[in-house]
Write a protein that binds this DNA or RNA. Structure first.
Lengths: 169, 169
DNA sequence: GCCTATTGATCGGTATACTGATGATTAGCA
DNA sequence: TGCTAATCATCAGTATACCGATCAATAGGC
């Protein structure tokens, strides 16, 4: 059990409340993400693809910035550099992304979406849209907007606390 | 890029908005969870332990319900049964949990926290509390309460959509 | 221009997570 | 009772995620 300082909002002071581990922000975050992945897989599979959420995020970012390297890609979607290597490996294997050694910096690999990759993005776009709608389906539109705003705000304050902080372009 | 139906709230009807993939609920969920894990590790390591978030969740649940089996444990903290097997393996290796074949049902394994496990729980409790506070540190108390409420509501509506739905005792 | 610090990518290792399958055991029902 | 269905645990396989370390290559200070 976890004890936590909670403002009841009713009587204007803090009380110590007993809190179940399944009601902590960390646990709820894991649970929401777990469901998000499951919904994504179901929707995308129904659209005839086996792309994962991470692969999709990488593919869209590469499509938006052709020629970017893996480290920049990782930073822009807040992934660990090591992880991105494997993700790109699989995208290359599937023929959706081309990876070539950069002429300007021979350490770097330039990434580009192939024609098959473009086709794939177009093909699954509706499924990805539907995924986001399903994830918020338990909330009213007003609540959903509030939820998104608060999640962004909470994350923004903590960006530098993970190994893979978001590095905006 | 993702297009999504969004209520602006200002003019009372829906418009199609261009939405960056890093601003979808799925991506924000992953990001928040990623940070939650990083903060947990940092806090718990500072307290002299290498327990992971999943191991901690399992350990607290076993402490709360001595003798429960792995499938029930998995359901009560919303984990996949296969995953829980490995998690318990590591808790047993560390000497924090005892696992014995149930006399009543020889398929099942009864789990109990050892004395070392109890000591560990007591030792890292403050670090776990602090983790939850850090995760909400970007929000006011009112906002934090609202955020938690909305996340619970969104999750509650989707519980059955993942392979590992929450099965409350 | 040279040396050092930094950076891009990768490797080895560990820990989630999930799918699909299997084996052992128990429960339910005709 | 006997058969079938369901359940608990586990295995093989794949894909995130992260840490720490290494190697190649570039950048910056002098």
């Amino acid at each position: 059990m976890i004890s936590m300082l909670v403002n009841t909002g009713h009587i204007g002071y803090n009380v110590i409340m007993r809190m179940d581990a399944t009601e902590t922000p960390g646990h709820l975050a894991r649970r929401f993400q777990q469901i998000a992945v499951a919904v994504f897989h179901a929707q995308v599979e129904a659209a005839g693809s086996d792309l994962t959420p991470v692969q999709y995020a990488a593919l869209t970012k590469i499509a938006a910035e052709p020629g970017l390297d893996q480290a920049t890609l990782a930073g822009q979607i807040a992934y660990d550099r090591t992880t991105i290597g494997g993700v790109v490996d699989r995208l290359v294997e599937k023929g959706l992304v081309a990876r070539i050694v950069s002429a300007k910096d021979r350490r770097a690999r330039e990434l580009r979406v192939t024609e098959a990759g473009q086709v794939m993005l177009t093909k699954i776009a509706p499924a990805v849209d539907e995924t986001q709608r399903v994830l918020l389906s338990g909330l009213s539109e007003k609540e959903a907007a509030q939820f998104m705003k608060l999640m962004k705000k909470a994350i923004g304050a903590l960006n530098d606390l993970s190994r893979a902080p978001l590095r905006e372009g």
